[in-house]
């Protein structure tokens, strides 16, 4: 079946069966490979994208439910909050293997968009759903704080 999706501000036509997870439409169909496959069961957060501004696990979000939605992936994350988060991630040298980091960043953008000055506990709570096997959490939390400061400045 053909679907029209709004992704990163563009309308894209994709051919996929109902029930196909957005993740695979992005990665295989549209070659937007910045969004990563981690577990397939919405448990690790590697596949996090924004659907209508909210961080969403694309591996358990199905194509037929997205027809009227605005989808943003790491490739399209360019607003003020996204820029602050990415700059903070680089300043704190957060990344190691990097596989989970698109998802971490999309979650961090979600957090700071709704709560620009999160406390330490609020950061940990919000970021709890994004697993990092290299265990970069110390720096993730430092970077969220730094991004928050950047947005305030």
């Amino acid at each position: 079946m053909q679907y029209q999706l709004k992704i990163n501000g563009e309308t894209r036509t994709v051919d996929a069966e109902p029930g196909t997870p957005l993740l695979w439409v992005l990665r295989d169909g549209l070659e937007l490979t910045g969004t990563k496959f981690g577990c397939g069961v919405a448990y690790c957060g590697a596949c996090t994208v924004h659907v209508d501004g909210s961080p969403t696990r694309s591996c358990q979000t199905f194509i037929e439910d997205l027809v009227d939605s605005e989808i943003t992936t790491i490739e399209g994350a360019q607003d003020k909050v996204a820029q602050a988060v990415q700059a903070a991630w680089r300043e704190k040298d957060v990344v190691q293997c990097g596989w989970c980091q698109s998802g971490q960043i999309m979650s961090a953008i979600g957090l700071l968009s709704e709560n620009p000055k999160p406390s330490d506990d609020e950061i940990k709570d919000y970021m709890q759903g994004n697993a990092c096997r290299c265990v970069t959490y110390v720096r993730i939390n430092d970077a969220v704080k730094l991004a928050s400061q950047k947005l305030e400045a």
């Binding site: 937007l32 490979t33 910045g34 969004t35 992936t73 790491i74 490739e75 990415q86 991630w89 680089r90 040298d93 957060v94 990344v95 990097g98 980091q101 698109s102 960043i105």
Partner: peptide, 10 residues
């Protein structure tokens, strides 16, 4: 590897 792993291009 800081840039590519934070903007999805790595």
């Amino acid at each position: 590897d800081n840039i590519g792993k934070t903007n999805g291009t790595a």
